[in-house]
Amino acid sequence: MAISLTVNRKARTVDVEADKPLLWVLREDLGMPGTKFGCGAGLCGACTVILNGEAVRSCQTPLSDAAGKDIVTIEGVAASPVGAKVVEAWTALDVPQCGYCQAGQIMSATALLTATPKPSAEEVSAGMAGNICRCATYLRIQKAIAQASTAISGAAA
């Protein structure tokens, strides 16, 4: 059955099993491998995308749940004002090491800063605790979120 969804502001239609996780639809059917597979169990956050404004684990999101929804992935995140600031801070601070987790980190940070433009240290911890970085870039992730937060507040002011 063909299912329609919006990915990075583009209408897309895929004709695969409705229970196929969005992660694999993105990677295999839509040719968008930026979203990563780490655990397949909702435990690592590598597959994080933003679905109707909320960060979700795409490995745990069946295509049927994404039908008709608005999805933002790493490939399109910089198109939003908050996403652009996050990506800018990530680049300025050279956050990645291996880089594998970073798509998920950026998506979670963007969702966090969209909902909470000036998060406390606890809110950053809570918002980002679902995203594992095996290379342990956490100190720079904290800094980059602070930097993006300042840039967003500055832009809004």
Partner: peptide, 10 residues
């Protein structure tokens, strides 16, 4: 890192 820009673009 030389790949940082490509990483953040996915």
């Amino acid at each position: 890192g030389v790949d940082t820009p490509a990483i953040v673009r996915g």
